[in-house]
Amino acid sequence: MAIRLRGLSKSFGQVEAVAGVDLEIGDGEFFSMLGPSGSGKTTVLRMIAGFEAPTAGTVELAGQDVTRLAPFERDVNTVFQDYALFPHMSVEQNVAYGLKIRRVPKAERAERAREALASVQLADFGKRRPAQLSGGQRQRVALARALVNRPKVLLLDEPLGALDLKLREQMQVELKALQREVGITFVFVTHDQVEALTMSDRIAVFNRGRIEQVGTPAEVYERPATPFVAGFVGTSNLLTDEGGTYSIRPEKIRLLDEEAPAGTGDDLRTVTGTVAEVVYRGDSTRFLVALDEGGRLTALQQNHETSSEEVAAYRGTRIRLQWHRRHNVIVTTPESPEAPEAPETESTCV
């Protein structure tokens, strides 16, 4: 077990940022902490690193209780959101700093720094200052500076947040490959569910200082445990009937013309409505449908053969929606006291 958190809580004055988090992260796992801003994920990361002292609870690293230890006494390294590269040192000095502090001999230090820079494709950049690098390059230097110390756990605090989309997608792949190669535990904080789904072995979904669900990407996406998870990870379509509240993913819904012959059977659920909005997205189209029985559903269709003009013509037309009941995910049962709520999503995924 690389990390074990027990009853971890943190209050800032009256504000409870983290409210009792229990979590176990295995050796060599790529673990993501996903949640909106202010959900407590970064505070948990900072408590693992030692920058914040918990109000209650314990942090164990590799079986050892480190709750009261200072950051420099813990065998973890952090990649900061703003990279925090020392501006007055060269790239090489930045990378070698941790080794220098640990009194690694000069020759070995230089050698390992060179290797670490080479492993992030920055072998020729050692003499530069951080200010002379692009955002993506700084990101890599920050990675090299942390990994060169061969920590048991690497903590990453929204490390890709400042990069543009193309670079971010490229870094996602590289990070994952790097993690497989070095085999150490990565704890990755992000508010981007696509990022979490793409890279992680397991994900913990945070909301209001608590963990709503821990699971593999598939579990979290396909079997969200709460309405919040259903809404935050992907687009949530919540439907309420006598069986409770369901979530149905937009891509599972088929769109049918009102007159077209529809499949029947107990395993199929069919509803009718009017197309309220059509959002053309290039490869796919999102249809926002106002249901006759009340409520709204989003359905997603690949633009296999339809063009933008054709899909636009659907606006205002009558339509039928159909999906297999096995894709229904119960997020609350009628007995459950918690009312389904629409979570605030920072971005939506399809």
Binding site: A49, G50, F51, T78, A84, F86, Y97, I101
Partner: peptide, 11 residues
């Protein structure tokens, strides 16, 4: 965060 980064690296 410069100072935190240094502490994180063992200083």
């Amino acid at each position: 965060s410069y100072e935190e980064a240094a502490m994180d690296l063992g200083a």
